[in-house]
Amino acid sequence: MDVRQKMQKINSYIIDSQEEEIKRIAIELHEGVGQNLYSILTGLQVVESGINEQQMKNYVHEMSQLIEKTIQEIRLLSVELHPPTLTAFGILPAMKSYLKLYTSTFGILVDLESVGGESNLPERSKIAVFRVCQEALANIAKYADTSKVKMTFHWLEAELKITIDDFGKGFQLEEHDGTLPSHSSGIAMMKERMHLTGGKCVISSKIGEGTSIELSLPL
């Protein structure tokens, strides 16, 4: 086993371990912390119904609303960390669910299109594709200065191709090797995730015209 293969094995182990920990945290947030807060909310609502003094009643009601808002935020965070639809229903339903959260958070409208019949991806590939798309969208929100994104899934006979176009301000690729600026560590992880699943991640960008990310994965 050469050095490159050893590094790939180590990176794969690290990523798999991270995903297991993320999944555990997401479940704990939803089923542990979330459920405990829901029990507290129910108790406060019972207390509120038995209070006669209006000022105290208003205070308890405000606390109930705050806890209810916190429960919603925890649910959203849990979905962002590890959407249950990803395992149960596949990459497209999971992405649609995530895009609703993404649009409500950043105000960026994502036009998602799927061409061809969806294939059932292995668990590792589903997670890799979801994380790469998630990272791409996060970078768009941070750097692209755009209000719309086009994402297309092309389901071919032996390959899944995904294109993500942001129509934003773009950036300058380094001319000597086509790599990204050194601060874009998230993009490097995107490339590595796709590589470990046998796929590719190719980025092209032009100042004033936006950035295009092309993912490909064998089926």
Rank of each mutant, 00 (worst) to 15 (best):
I203Y: 03
T105V: 12
L217W: 08
D2T: 02
T163W: 11
I25Q: 08
E20W: 04
R131L: 15
G186C: 02
L99T: 05
K148F: 03
L160K: 08
Y59D: 09
H61V: 05
K169F: 05
A94P: 10
L44A: 09
G50Y: 11
V115Y: 07
S114Q: 09
S12H: 09
T70Y: 03
R124P: 01
K148H: 11
A138R: 14
Q5H: 07
V110P: 02
K161G: 06
M189I: 15
S78N: 07
T105I: 14
L92V: 14
H176P: 11
S216Y: 12
E62Y: 02
I162T: 03
D166P: 06
D111A: 11
I213E: 03
E53D: 07
R131T: 13
K200G: 13
Y13H: 13
S64P: 00
F167W: 14
K206I: 15
D145E: 07
A136Q: 15
T103C: 08
S114E: 04
R75K: 15
S12D: 04
V202I: 05
A141R: 01
S182M: 08
V202M: 08
G117N: 13
V202R: 14
F171N: 06
S17L: 15
N58M: 09
K69D: 04
H176I: 10
D177C: 05
K200E: 13
